[in-house]
Structure formats: structure tokens, C-alpha cells
Design a protein around this nucleic acid. Sequence first.
DNA 1: ATGTTATATGCAAATATGAGCATATAGACA
DNA 2: TGTCTATATGCTCATATTTGCATATAACAT
Lengths: 137, 137
Amino acid sequence: MEANLKAETLKILGDQTRLRVAYLLAASKRSLCVCEIVDSLKLPQYQISKSLVILRRAGLVGVDRNGTWGYYYPKTDQKTNTILFDFVKEYCIGEPFDGDLTELSKRLALRDGGRCVVGFVPEKELQKLIRKKTAAV
Amino acid sequence: MEANLKAETLKILGDQTRLRVAYLLAASKRSLCVCEIVDSLKLPQYQISKSLVILRRAGLVGVDRNGTWGYYYPKTDQKTNTILFDFVKEYCIGEPFDGDLTELSKRLALRDGGRCVVGFVPEKELQKLIRKKTAAV
DNA sequence: ATGTTATATGCAAATATGAGCATATAGACA
DNA sequence: TGTCTATATGCTCATATTTGCATATAACAT
């Protein structure tokens, strides 16, 4: 299969929010729950949701639904996507990408059995929850 | 110096015309005259001109002026640019990119001493001019 | 000077896009 | 049933972008 870069695709990634989401998915090699993305980027839920719809319509990401929860992942069925995600992962440097990734890793610490088990977590409560969880283990 | 990919930059390339121009500049490893780009892409002159302004404002291309003639080239003073142009060059495949490049190579055949010496050339006259030139040599 | 040519740009209309907010949907669970 | 909660979506407004056309600029030729 041959990669084929199109202007349309670049346009999709040519938006700060969508690029941040794409970076998060590219950099963390796993599916992410919508609420984890929202908490990592600290943007309104509807913005993330809309960004994901657009990324999905462009064939860049896919979703596994688990009840009300949605797990998004970078689609790698087309070589172009793989190349693009690698590119994004490698060259999106500094803020806000670094910070987003840091927030994500904190959020991922709350997972249980590899699954997201909490919804939106306000920043203030995140530390508390993490401490509780580490204590429990 | 460190590459740093920004959404803004991707947005610039997320436009068909601008991407075609960028590809042409990336693929032909030399400065191109505006009229050569216009003839290669077969788009209105003002569209090319405006695209070039935007690419230039984004720091992606530079220009050498020679009288009324303008020679544009991909800027490589930032690593991000180099990487992006390589990326575009490698992964923009098929139409319209291939056709644009073919047209360009025909147009470049009209150069004299490495310089563009004709302005806009309607498709019909291009073959005629090329034949005349080859005969002269 | 006058005309010609290469390139840039100002403007107006059409269209697209993003932000924000409210609300819908739909699954989980009491 | 009713109530949460996660996610999606419809709507409006403001703003940005694209397109097309006409024209400006500026160098060159005669």
C-alpha cells in the first residue's frame, strides 16, 4: 500500500486542538478514553468531542465503544496515517504537547486493569485520587 | 536547532494550491520563477501569487528578485522546514503532483543559461517553443 | 514617453470554520 | 422507574478563508 499525502489531511491536522489530540494518541501507544483526553488537554468536552468526530471522518482515528465510554486510537490501516502519526509524534515538541502528555500520564495512573474507570476529574482532585490509589496498592 | 511542528504550519500546507506549489518547490531542487509555477499548475496568476505570499509569510519559502521576475525557493534555515519539504516531496504522490512536475520539466526546458527567459506560455505554444529551442541547439 | 510584461494586491461576495452554549442520546445503576 | 454520567450534536454568532476580478506597481523595451 502506498502513502498518499493530501492537502485535506494536512488541513485536518492544521488546527491546534486536533493536532493536540492527534499527538496525544500518537505519543501514548494505546487507546484513550474521551474523558482522559478532555482532562489532559483541559479543554471543554464538546471541543474534544467535535475534534474527534472530524479526525474520525477523515479516517485518522477509530473508536471502540464500551457502553457510554469511547476509546479512540490512531488508525494505522493506511500507510499515510502511520507516517503522519509518526511525524506528529516526532516533531511536535514543547508546549502544549509536553504538558498534555504529562497530564495524560497522571490521568492514566487512575486506570484500573488497563481500563478508564473514572469520568472527568477536576485538576484539584486528581492528586487526591492518585494518592488514594497508590495507597490502596 | 530543533524542529518544531506547529498546527499553523500544517494549516498553511492544508490547502491544495499551496501544497502543490510547495511540492513543486520541494521536488525540483531549484528556485522557480513565478511564471513557471503558474504554467506548471495551470492556475490563475493571482492564485499562485497569493499562495506564494502566504507561504512566504509563514517562513516556508523565500524569494530572490531579479527585476520584475521573482524566483522562489523552499527555505531551509529552519530544520522544521527541511523536514516538512522532504515529507511533502516524499509522500505527495499521484495527481495533481505528478502532472505538475511533468509540466514543470517542460517549462524548465525553455530556460536559457539556467534562467527563465519567457513569461507565461499558453499550453499550445509550449511544444512549439520547445521544438524551436531544441533545433537551435 | 509609451507600451508591454511580470508580479502583487485591494476589494467584495461566497463560503467555511471555530467557539460557546444548550441539549440530546444512551448506557449504567439505584 | 428515575437519576446519574459519558459522549455527541444542533444552533448561532463571529471570524477567517477562498475566489474572482480589476487594478496597481515596477522594471524593461522601443
